[in-house]
Nucleic acid binder design. Sequence first.
DNA 1: TTTTTTTACGAAAACGATTGCGGCAAAGAG
DNA 2: CTCTTTGCCGCAATCGTTTTCGTAAAAAAA
Lengths: 349, 349
Amino acid sequence: MKFEALTIKDIAKALNLSVSTVSKALRGSHEISGDTKKAVMAYASEHNYKPNPIAQSLKRGRSKSIGVIVCNIDNNFFSQVINGIESIAQNKDYNVIITQSQESYEREVSNSEHLSSRSVDGLIISLSAETRNVDHLVKLHQKGLPIVLFDRVTDEIHTHTVIANNYKGAYEATQHLLQQGFRRIAHITSSGSLSITLERLAGYRKALEDAGLKPDDRYIKFCQHGGMIQEETCQALEELLQLPDKPDAIFTASDRLSTTTLSQLSKRKIRIPQQIGLVGFTNSISADIFNPSLTAVVQPALEMGKLATEMLIQLIESKRPVTVFEKRILETELTIRDSSIKDGNHTNG
Amino acid sequence: MKFEALTIKDIAKALNLSVSTVSKALRGSHEISGDTKKAVMAYASEHNYKPNPIAQSLKRGRSKSIGVIVCNIDNNFFSQVINGIESIAQNKDYNVIITQSQESYEREVSNSEHLSSRSVDGLIISLSAETRNVDHLVKLHQKGLPIVLFDRVTDEIHTHTVIANNYKGAYEATQHLLQQGFRRIAHITSSGSLSITLERLAGYRKALEDAGLKPDDRYIKFCQHGGMIQEETCQALEELLQLPDKPDAIFTASDRLSTTTLSQLSKRKIRIPQQIGLVGFTNSISADIFNPSLTAVVQPALEMGKLATEMLIQLIESKRPVTVFEKRILETELTIRDSSIKDGNHTNG
DNA sequence: TTTTTTTACGAAAACGATTGCGGCAAAGAG
DNA sequence: CTCTTTGCCGCAATCGTTTTCGTAAAAAAA
């Protein structure tokens, strides 16, 4: 089954003109007479002519498409980011090609190479939890591929980045738990190689210290796969619950970790927040109907996607090499719900 | 910033061969000697030669990419479907270009035209809630663009389709509510123009009739925007609650409708399932931590995406026009949780 | 040795669009 | 009436790859 589209050649033949004349007429060149232009335009719109973008790409050396690599689309944070990416890209007539690393370094490498060999004009990426080495990206970047990093970033690539204020978000979350009277606050987080992990960990630690508490490494659990593997999260939780001084609250650092933790605590009949308080990073639109409703650090995901895309397109379309790079930090929002409010302070039934 | 890749021409020059020889050597043509092949292959892999996919597309008339149109990515059902699409596409070396209709007819039309003019090799689509007319798709299909429909389908386009067994899923959900002793079961659903709406509605009605109850239209509420506009869902719910014989249970027909309904009932301090039982179509991975945990009709979303993609690629790559079209119906699964279990029957704390 | 067949490669025309350049008219200048 | 300018258009190259066809030399058959 082939799909024969109208080409410039067809128009030329129909109007008894040369292809070059038609091409120029369509682009409104001054070297074509008004009459000819009108005739060509009329014919083109009447027959619904659309220039073949592949031919244009080949000629221009640009494909008008941008590649996106995220860990997993089935995650409210990333799907909201993609929402943002798509909205801007659509406006500027770029295609968005989405791929998932599934938190795998190997897939991240192959996806990035695949996308660049597919000649995307630029790349928006959030690193996988397994990624420790970013040579694959550095290489592409050095070859001239514009890249924008978001969320999970690295400074080994000298380019624009967009992140949430993870430090502050984590600080506020922890501080909130402290204000609620929790003292033994554990932290379940992603791989220690991720920027977000370190930033959130730092915010968590600082909040504890500012409250005169000493962070205790036994209360900090890393999940190398960022919650993609449920058993890993369960085990982290199990270890926390086995501690002699069981934590009285948990601060989880990502969407998946938050829901898994909540689910596992329920399964163990541990009452939240009475036995264990819970605050998590999450962009779930359902956090308010969780049992209990989940106090959440919400990232401006849509905004991050939009911003990253605008920055990328700016890089792509800039005439001269860009040398000054921005690091945009967007504020998170702490939405307080039942999971962190000790008895008697209930806000909502 | 331009990104100068190695071309066949460069290899030809370096090895003192012609481009045609190099091209043939790379593709392992029999008309090239073993020595030459080896030399070319060696040079190519050493210098990491990757054929320019755009040039290949232009030549072959195929872009090795498929377009996807869904209402909204930020929805567990669709993101899981996309997960499935991506996994198969990646295997078969196809790019996936994702767009969102946001339940808007206009955006669906423009996205489909844009994708086809971007010369995707095929299209996977689930219709928007606003869509009543599918001429835009029929037109593309007639021009030869392979299309696979999933979830929200139409039979005006004679092609492969993949859907869940909506009738049976709805029947089972309603039957379950009946078995739990609910009698005045309302149904909040999407636009009446969608196939899923009609199928689910039919299953709901049949279950009532089989139980000797007469379906009552006042208990059936359509949301034209499929839950994208929260106010619409709220109003539907409000109207139900204003009925003289208030429903004692609600069966919601989609992800968004289910979560919004749950959230709104909570907000109104209506106890679930004691005052109103609830069952909903949803693929939320968090349904078990909702308050209360939500009895759900779960669709095999991942499988649907995989299947749709396999079917599409089969259409794309088929040598001769395909005339026999499949309608695959995948079974849903009813996961029973607290929202539909009347007091005393609790399965889970 | 001559003729035929094979082998191995190159030239060139595509795919569809863009663009510099050259040319042929008509219009203006001298 | 000749020369230059201007307007309008076509030729041809180009992007990188694929593919058909032609052809030289080498191998096989005569």
